[in-house]
Nucleic acid binder design. Structure first.
Lengths: 214, 214
DNA sequence: GTCTATATTATGATAGAC
DNA sequence: GTCTATCATAATATAGAC
């Protein structure tokens, strides 16, 4: 029998786990799995290094927890959005989803950093990530593109690499923000820069005859 | 006085250095600076781990040698290309340069992997990379865009993030090839996929009235 | 549940044999 | 010039105090 109320103890544990996941996300995103140390993660979270194996057994499972958290945010955002857009025209819906995707990339640069770190080499982690999180996201986008095409929009490329072209174009300024800032002297996260980026992406992927505007 | 001809000895040293740089390039590109170990690099190059500090003093300077090698390839390719295109119309030249850039990204996926690994977080290495290699590349592209605009082409975005949008769109399928293959089941490096990608990028960044083709 | 201390392994760099 | 052996340090994971 614990002396303190179990509720409170559990609460503390949950908070530590959350702090660790959040810290891990940023460390893994910046340095990659091998480059990030559980010490640095624990320090960033403000807890002892041994809290990592205590709460997550291994570094690997902490990494998976960070990935689950990340894609949870993404799903949350887009599921609500899709529900809210029910009944809206396909083209308008697609434009708004792409806009949302850019805004999400700007708000969560860790997402693409995290994936860039894993996608450059084969590993068990990449296979896990693809099966559990990336493929469902990919299928969702593919469905959108099929709807667009069925609606009469011209296919501007194979869904396969259009997916990666869109991701690359939309997220690179945010994923590589430190480089972007050093090279251009601009802050990619500034509101006017984000707005301009949204417009650029939309004009590239949804070209329209002059004058028309949705 | 060495017993063997100095020429031959030096030759061996040069070869070992080259093997190490090549191996380092791939290891750093896949795992990042912190994730790559000098042991793995040496093993990949087929030499002893101690050959790294012998030839390059530190891991850091091996990393810089790899970066110099990488951007040397890029410069070599584009300087020759620009000379060969002297006198060609601005728009045609720009299209050909973009096409070349995509082909280079497909032929050397390590280039963007290497930069993705460093561009996601602030570090002395990133500052060095920006000043020595990235900024000159950036200025070159910016010059091309200025020429295009002076020629009457509509500006499709600020050069600042258009640069990153182009890089992201052109290179992501190759930089993330392992992920691309797992998700789509396709080989992004296959000739027909590369050709399709070139066409996709050109159609996005050089939209033209139907019927016209350069 | 969290911390300090520690065991074990892996890393970057050095010394000495050949 | 390159390799084997080794040192010092930093890594992950475990054990025990509180």
């Amino acid at each position: 029998m614990p002396e303190r109320p179990p509720r409170r103890l559990q609460q503390r544990s949950v908070e530590t786990r959350e702090k660790l996941v959040e810290a891990a996300l940023h460390e893994f995103a910046e340095k990659g799995f091998g480059g990030a140390s559980t010490r640095a993660i624990a320090t960033r979270a403000g807890v002892a290094q041994s809290a990592v194996p205590y709460h997550f057994e291994t570094k690997d499972s902490l990494w998976k927890a960070a990935a689950d958290h990340l894609f949870g945010l993404l799903r949350e955002r887009f599921q609500a959005r899709v529900v809210g857009l029910d009944g809206v025209g396909v083209r308008t819906k697609s434009r708004l989803l792409v806009r949302d995707f850019v805004l999400f990339a700007a708000a969560h640069p860790e997402l693409h950093r995290f994936m860039l770190q894993e996608g450059t080499g084969r590993s068990e982690r990449l296979e896990w990530l693809v099966e559990k999180h990336i493929r469902p996201t990919f299928e969702f986008l593919r469905g959108q593109m099929d709807e667009l095409e069925a609606d009469g929009a011209p296919a501007i490329g194979r869904p396969d690499h259009l997916h990666y072209v869109l991701i690359g174009a939309a997220s690179t300024p945010y994923a590589l923000a430190p480089e972007f800032e050093l090279v251009t002297g601009e802050d990619p996260f500034a509101k006017e820069m984000v707005d301009a980026h949204v417009e650029l992406i939309l004009s590239l992927f949804f070209p329209e005859p002059r004058g028309e505007r949705q």
